[in-house]
């Protein structure tokens, strides 16, 4: 019986990680679902939906030669697949400013308190080592409208963090 797993992989970035892992999964009869793979700092990170006959220990055994060779940490959780249930975002939040502790916590607390469901978040640290800047982009769904989010974020703006809210009006044709 096929079942879904969430495979999480972390390791020092190097060329060929995705190719080696997905080749092994393909040869092992697994099917891939949605994924997020990105280099964070000098690390490569993978969150990958994998559908396979194997249970978690079986999948781990299948991947073991690759994870050992490339020195990757892998973690596997049983999950429900629930594909084809995308939630359409209706707002984008872009945040940037001098990097300091607490930006993410403060922004997301204000957003969560006003009913925003984060669907997609990515962030980077740019600038230089002595003057880092923080940049974050969030796509989310708000039931209560953008005005409430604007009000909630106003105090943060006064601390020098730039926050821009843009409605996402998806054109379907």
């Amino acid at each position: 019986m096929k079942r879904w797993h969430m495979l999480t992989v972390v390791g020092r970035d190097q060329p060929g990680i995705v190719a080696a892992l997905t080749e092994t999964l393909y040869r092992g009869g697994a099917n891939l679902g949605e994924a997020s793979m990105v280099r964070l700092g000098g690390n490569f990170t993978i969150m990958l939906m994998v559908e396979a006959d194997a249970d978690a220990p079986g999948l781990r055994r299948l991947l073991e030669p690759v994870t050992r060779r490339l020195q990757l940490h892998a973690h596997i959780d049983a999950i429900e697949g629930r594909l084809h249930e995308h939630v359409e975002p209706n707002v984008r939040v872009v945040v940037h400013g001098a990097d300091r502790p607490g930006i993410v916590a403060q922004v997301t607390a204000a957003l969560a308190a006003n009913g925003l469901n984060i669907l997609d978040l990515e962030s980077d640290v740019g600038g230089t080592a002595d003057r880092p800047i923080y940049i974050m982009t969030i796509d989310g769904y708000t039931r209560d409208g953008i005005a409430a989010l604007e009000r909630a974020l106003e105090p943060l703006r006064r601390t020098g963090v730039a926050v821009r809210l843009t409605p996402i009006d998806t054109m379907v044709g």
Binding site: H84, H86, D169, T170, V172, G173
Partner: peptide, 13 residues
């Protein structure tokens, strides 16, 4: 740049 979906491409934008 804006977000699009399509009646011929279900569940993806």
């Amino acid at each position: 740049v804006g977000r699009e979906g399509c009646l011929s491409v279900p569940d993806y934008t």
